[in-house]
Amino acid sequence: MTAVRCGPVKLSSIFDADSFRRRRLAYACAAGIVVLALVETANALLAPLRAPADRDWRAATAAIRAGFQPGDLIVTAPDWADPLMRMHLGDLIPLAVAGRLDAARFGRIWEIAQRGARAPETEGGHVAQSGRHGALTLRRYERAAARVSFDFVAEWSRATVSRVGLGGQVNWCSPLPDRFECPELPSQSVKPELLEIDTSPHLALSTQPAGQATTVIEFDRVPLGRELAVGAGLHNVWLRKSGKGTVSLRVLVQGRELGRIEAGSLTGWTLRKFDTSALAGQSQSVRFEITVDDPTSRTLGFAAEART
């Protein structure tokens, strides 16, 4: 029988302590890369498991459907998850909501979030309901909603539309069931349309501005509130790429200019809120004047709401 002698293995028999002392920095860097490799490998294996599964979406969807009220807004954070949310809840998101001017009119906002993100639409709201569904976090935010006293896109048929030439001659555009048609340029109608502006959906009044004329869209007796929110931008990525002109949208109330929005190929969707508190409670005419320096490949879309 052979006796086996066991004892602790000395680290110095494995590692060269002198070498370690001399080259600590180099060893630390090397060890750091090895640790990085382990972390990256583990992450590559585990990260797919942390992505939201279909059952997570179904659970979050069921919770929303249980508490959904007409007028609620549903959003995702980050916004790239939006198609998955719409696959589950698209019936609760009509075109007008998807193509909203902004989120101010919504007092209750459901947010399906992941990876710690928060949707900008929920800004100013407090969490009224919260729940976790696998990798998804569902929150319902509540806040004071802006009351819209006049939606210029929804009320588009109440407008009068004309083209004013350089010499001041006025050509009136005819109201048709779905648009205004201007006589000299029948293809350049004014109509409500779901547009792609800055690669986002916007339900807006679209028009192709004329080069030598001002397109005038005027609404009479608009019940004004404390602010007039106006958003504008150029439609269609291909047109934005091929055209060069800048479209100017001038906003006037009772003949007085509130401001302008300039829309070019790179300006995106510009949202401005004009203070109308001095006119709150009054009904006034609101006029939009559209001009362009080069009309080639330019389609302007704009939306506006008078809010209390």
Binding site: A47, P48, A51, P52, W80, A81, D82, P83, L84, R86, M87, L89, G90, D91, I93, P94, L95, A98, G99, Q114, A135, E193, L194, L195, E196, T199, S200, P201, N236, V237, W238
Partner: peptide, 30 residues
């Protein structure tokens, strides 16, 4: 793709829905 958004909105308007029937996603990214 970001610049293809216009085609999705054309479908919304033509089909009168924002609800896709199917989505292909990889790790939750459509």
């Amino acid at each position: 793709e970001k610049h293809f958004a216009v085609y999705e909105y054309l479908h919304w308007e033509s089909y009168q829905t924002t609800r896709p029937a199917q989505v292909y996603a990889h790790e939750g990214v459509p």
